[in-house]
Design a binder for these strands. Structure first.
Lengths: 341, 341
DNA sequence: GCCTTTTATGGTAGCGCTGTCATTATTCGT
DNA sequence: ACGAATAATGACAGCGCTACCATAAAAGGC
């Protein structure tokens, strides 16, 4: 005697077979209606759709994915969500995926390549159609999986390096370099630098290097820098500036790795009675809304986060197959002159 | 003649059968090693693990989920990621899930119950073990799915209502009420209110109602309010305060629906030469880092976002089955006196 | 030493869906 | 009007894994 069907499942979850039976068609026809694929007579479609509605049928994507060896998932691996940069990227991705069948699945790596590797592998277990990551630097294991998988890969934010497939972003090294040139041209000479302790934020490091290069070219160098013993935050910026100035009161400009910390720097100046720009220039990175809403808008660099996310997702949707050659898309950046440097 | 196996897949993706063959065991034994389930001899486990490593085997979770009628996914549906509140909640969830087999899958609803319903259904297609949503208000269809599904449900942020399963959060109505009481006690009498256009931010509405109730009790009422024709942002707060004051110069305190907008209000005061607190009180909501980093820390209410996320995920992990009775966990809130009201 | 329990392993049958191929009904071109 | 293309539908196997049961060997109890 054959074992009773359906022993493992809750008895009342409808399957495609139930829908097909109710609509009086075969399973495969019902499947075609669900996927809007292949020629279906209008009358048939209607009957199937009403059966779906009546049963509150939800397709089982695990079964679908297994049968078709593919999914409509797009894995997105981001370093952090506390840093507003990445939610902006995500919004871009979402915007591009709305009205498509694709669905983003988000993981957070905490800037740790090993966590990235672990999450990547657990995402690959769901057979995603595409993978989006931040940066070009991954563990060797992750890189191998990215290169060998049957999915397209986009690496965001950074374009200084060798992408797996598609890179969308800007040159952070160049942004750092332009920052230095801009500030030198505006007359600043005595540079300080504030850092945070996220050593794996490769973009921040690249900007730092670019800045140093431009100073070197002008015969200058950083007078001082301080690494805040914690992740980036406004308070980190405030406290770091206080420390920098206590050791080197002669600084005339301080560069921060991002706008959040730069805002903290401005708050320190307000508190200590330092006139921003005249006495001390403050320069950030990202071009956040809040910095531009201040009475004296923050001098910074606008990174085009939303555009990066949107462009990457659109590019990934262009073809189902892995492209034969690598693509690098430079979304560029803009110096916002602002009023603080 | 039987059709060749594996025609649909790329030929070189290893399966559990390949692992088992290489290790010289049966598929089910290899499966047990992968899942760390059931008794396995150490020598066998080692052989299987080394076969897995050699082949770079990645389990196919679609197949696993289909066979076991379950997954280790935890669906998380949040209204927005631009609002820093939700990344904080997410961090809490992540913290609770680290070192467990569970994996969060994040969707963004843009504060739209219909989008929430759509994303919920597409997530349910993956048979999640649990679902986390924001708020207690969902479409009837969504509510029905939540109630009938074979997964646990946590509704976050808000506890003023009837949860499906578990609610974790605070009473926003009470927070609004306490805000009013606090400000009245501090001597403020002429209240203004700034709003944004996200009508479905039920929490903001509940705070608004609580505030009005406390004013009514004290024989007061809002003198004016302005709805900014756009989503919440610092610039929205700045511009809204300008409009409120131009119409009603006699206001002595303005309450904002969140810290971002309140910061914008402070920036307007700085720009317009208004002395915050003496001439005009400013009150926010959330207790963000950046507001507390200002020279005069923002007066606001601390909502415990991280704790909410962490508590909810922990609670969901407690049992595999849907709890027989509803649970409401009040994480509370704290008034931060600050220096702006 | 014999029976029971525990440990370790395997055979088999699906889970729910879709790719492939086949079949029939309809439309079209000339 | 007749073969050829097209539209609409179905039968069936199998995707990769795990639940279920069975079996065999080792360990324990008295």
């Amino acid at each position: 005697m054959p074992r009773k069907r359906n022993t493992r499942r809750s008895p009342d979850v409808p399957t495609l077979a139930d829908v097909a039976r109710l609509a009086g068609v075969s399973e495969i026809t019902a499947s075609r209606v669900v996927r809007a694929q292949g020629p279906i007579a209008d009358s048939t479609r209607l009957r199937v759709l009403s059966a779906i509605a009546e049963l509150s049928y939800i397709p089982n994507r695990a079964a679908g994915s297994l049968a078709s060896a593919g999914s409509t998932l797009m894995s997105v691996l981001l370093p952090s969500l506390s840093n507003i940069v990445f939610p902006d990227v995500l919004r871009g991705i979402h915007t591009a995926l709305t009205q498509t069948a694709f669905q983003p699945v988000i993981g957070v790596t905490d800037y740790d390549p090993l966590i990235e590797e672990r999450i990547l592998i657990s995402f690959l277990a769901w057979q995603p159609a595409a993978v989006i990551l931040a940066g070009l630097h991954h563990t060797p294991v992750a890189r191998r999986h990215l290169e060998q998988g049957r999915f397209r890969v986009a690496e965001l934010m950074d374009i200084d390096g060798d992408p797996v497939d598609i890179a969308v972003g800007m040159s952070h090294r160049q942004a750092g370099y332009e920052t230095g040139r801009h500030l030198i041209q505006r007359g600043y000479r005595r540079f300080g630098y504030a850092r945070h302790n996220i050593l794996t934020d490769d973009r921040a490091s690249a900007r730092y290097e670019g800045l140093c290069a431009s100073l070197r070219e002008a015969g200058l160098s950083l007078i001082t820098e301080h690494v805040y013993p914690g992740p980036s935050s406004t308070i980190a910026g405030r406290d770091t500036l206080a420390i920098l100035l206590s050791g080197h009161p002669g600084l005339d400009v301080v560069i921060f790795p991002n706008d959040d910390m730069a805002m903290g720097g401005i708050f320190h100046c307000m508190h200590a009675g330092i006139t921003v720009r005249e006495q001390l220039g403050i320069f950030g990175f990202n071009g956040l809304d809040i910095g531009q809403a201040m009475p004296m808008p923050l001098s910074t660099i606008l990174s085009k986060r939303f555009l990066i996310g949107k462009t990457a997702a659109e590019k990934l949707l262009e073809s189902r197959e892995r492209p034969p050659e690598k693509t690098i898309i430079n979304t560029g950046f803009e110096i916002i002159e602002g009023a603080t440097a």
